[in-house]
Structure formats: C-alpha cells, structure tokens
Design a protein around this nucleic acid. Structure first.
Lengths: 214, 214
DNA sequence: CAGTGTGAAGGGGTTCACAGCG
DNA sequence: CGCTGTGAACCCCTTCACACTG
C-alpha cells in the first residue's frame, strides 16, 4: 500500500542507505551474482534485513516472496529512485586538494554524474589539468552554469568564500549543492543543500577513544 | 542531575554536534565575543536552542542562568569532552588525492591532532613531500605505529585494500579508525571505527532534486 | 516453505515548556 | 527578569513479528 510515487515522505535516513545498497549490488553484479535476499544484503552491510525491506517498500515491491531480489532489476529500480536515470551536470567550485580529489574520483562518472567544470579564484590554480578538464577562473562560473545547464555544484572553497559562491551558483540556476565548507549556507527556497563536515569526523573518533580511558 | 562523568550514554547524534559548536565558538572568540546565549549559538548553526542546552547537559553545567555562556570557558569544556585535552597521533594510510587533501588540512593540528605519518603502497607515491613529512612505504606502517604510539589511523586506500590495512593497524595497536573506503570493516572489540561515505553524498543531492521534477 | 511486505511495537533523539537560579 | 537546565511529550525511525505469496 501507499502510493509508490509519493517520495516526499521517505525517511531522510533512508536516502544515503539506498546509495550504499546500490554499491553492494554493483559489486554482486560484477561477481556474477544474480539473486540476493535481504538477509544476505544485511550481512554485507551492517544493517538489519527488515530495515532494507522497509527502505525498499517506500518505492515499490522489488522482490519475489520466497525467493529474494533479482540483482540487475534491483539496481535498475534503486538507480531510478536516486535520480540516476538522469544525467546530472556537476561543477566543482574550489580546486584545492579536496576539490581535485573529488574531481578525479571515478565513481561519479559511472553513476550518471558528469563533471563538466572545475573552478578556482586563484590564478595559480587556474589552468591546472584535471583529467580531460582544466581549472577555469571563477569569474566564468555563472555564465558557464547557464550555458551548460549545470544541476549540481560541489563547494570546496574556504569557509569565508562559501556563502558568496553559493549565492552565485544559485543565482545562475543551480538547484542542488554539496557543501564541504564548514559553514551553514543561508537557506533558499527550492534549493537543496547537503552539508558534509569532514573536520568534525576526527573528533568523533577521539571522543569515543577518550571514553575508554575513563 | 545524572553523573556528568557517565559519558557512555551520550546520544550518538550529539557528538558531531559538539564539534560544530566548538567551531562556531572558536570563530566567536577570534571575533572578540566573550559571552553567548544558546539562542545566539542556535542562530549561527541550524539548530534549536534547547538542543544545544541539552547536548551540554550530558557533560555538566557550563552556563550561568539568566546570563549565558562564557565563550572561552565553553571552548575549554567542550574540548575536554571531545578528548582534545590530549594529543592524538594520527597516520594517514593511502596518499592518493584524498589522503593528501586530508594530510594538508590545517585544522587537524590546531585541535590536538598530530599527523605523524603518511603511508602508501605504491612506489610512485612514496617519497612525495607533504608539508614537513614525506610519504612512507606501507611496509613500514606497523613498526611505525608501535614506535610512535599512534592512536588513530585514517584509511584512504581503495576499497579492496581497506580491510587488510585495518587489520594491520589494529594489530599494531591503533584503537580508532576513520575509514573513507566504501566498505564495512570487520568489527573488533575495543576498536572504534567511524565510517565516512563520500561517494553517497552526491546521490543524496540528486535524490532530492529528482523529487522536485515530479 | 522460504523470504518478502508491512502494521504495530519499541527506542532514540528532538522539542517543548517550565522550574530553577543568578 | 532572563536564560539555563531538564523532565516529559512528541516524533521519527528502527525493529519485530507475522500475514502473505510465489
């Protein structure tokens, strides 16, 4: 039951899990596995089998009772759920080490993401080759976004510059942002922002290590 | 109430938030702000004031009723809570772009983390200078960990190599791991693993963008 | 009869609302 | 009087348990 097309009320916690399921499924497919049960998937992640089935249930009925899931079919369905049946044009703003690391990450291309441009404000970095692209000057950013129908901007500039870059890309038409700068961007209606906080991750580790000393 | 030293039952979601509070507080201190209320902090993050106060309450009473919090005192207390009153020796395993990006990130040093070594298995990368360090061969990893009392290992190797590296560093005495490889590491008693999944983040963005099209 | 799909129970975390205190 | 500290209500999410079906 429940309209499979009503995706608005998918739990937020489900979405990154779908991406992880997909990754394991791709690995299974590469290994020639044709069918899989929720129990087997759960063992390969650190998940509960019921959780996996429930996550799928928000989108439809993908399995066969008594049998399991067909790997290739499940990959197709989950890809569609995550919006990967669409090509997403992506720019990276900020070509420091992190920006370059993300730019060279192969996984993006494989999933329907097309990195179309990398930008930086520093003239020392502009022109640096990154695979088949080269770093462009930031002043061309807005026009580039309009001319190449860019959907998503990844922000890897320093904290002080992030809000300005965000405003610029939104003004130029971007509706999705992946922000690695450690600042909260001002919310804008119709624009989705995903915040990633790398600088806090080490502290999470030391927190739990410090507990064990007591 | 509740023993402030009983840190075992701090909600898991609280820990990364403490780190974010700390970042905002450092910024306030730099700007010469001496006192702050939970309401003011909430506005600078995207948080609820009650949430901030509740998070603090797991560790003690840091404020003055009717007044607010003294910034420098709060920084000291939160730093202690996160284990930053201790020096943590860190190694990075895998000197690809991501490993190098993390290695060059200044924020680590400022908070009590000391990057003592960067390792890679590829002879093409060994010897590459990274600030005052240079990339070492992976075969020296275990001995290095023992001789330099390394507490935390950051894993930035490819997925296939991650489990092997994890076993090696745990065997050598590491008790905290920050894993960027997209695989679940086998759990080991007494070893804390924090998993970071960069490759799923773009999918979260495209999921929400795809919803708006419907 | 094995494994999915799901209502219902359970648990963890957030938010409310106010007592407590400087 | 203002803002902290916190029990209690609320809500979202996870997990259970079982009806359902190929």
């Amino acid at each position: 039951m429940g309209d499979p097309l009503d995706k608005a009320r998918v739990p937020q916690a489900t979405v990154p899990r779908l991406a992880r399921y997909l990754r394991v499924l791709h690995r299974l497919e590469r290994d020639g596995v044709a069918k899989v049960s929720s129990q087997e998937l759960a063992e390969k992640l650190d998940a509960n089998a019921a959780q996996i089935r429930k996550d799928f249930s928000y989108f439809g009925e993908f399995g066969v009772r008594g049998v399991g899931y067909e790997v290739s079919f499940l990959i197709a369905e989950l890809s569609r759920c995550l919006g990967l049946d669409h090509q997403w044009n992506v720019v990276i703003c900020g070509a420091g080490k992190l920006g370059q690391a993300l730019a060279r990450y192969r996984g993006f291309r494989e999933e329907g993401y097309e990195l179309v441009g990398v930008f930086d404000s520093s003239s020392h970095v502009v022109g640096t080759p990154i695979d088949e692209l080269s770093v462009r000057p930031e002043k061309e950013l807005a026009q580039f976004i309009r001319e190449n129908s860019v959907h998503i901007a990844v922000i890897t500039v320093p904290a002080e510059a992030a809000q300005g870059v965000a405003e610029k890309v939104i003004e130029a038409g971007v509706r999705g942002i992946l922000n690695f700068a450690p600042v909260k961007l001002a919310p804008v209606d119709g624009v989705f922002v995903r915040q990633v906080d790398l600088s806090t991750e080490l502290m999470v580790v030391s927190f739990y290590l410090a507990q064990d000393r007591d």
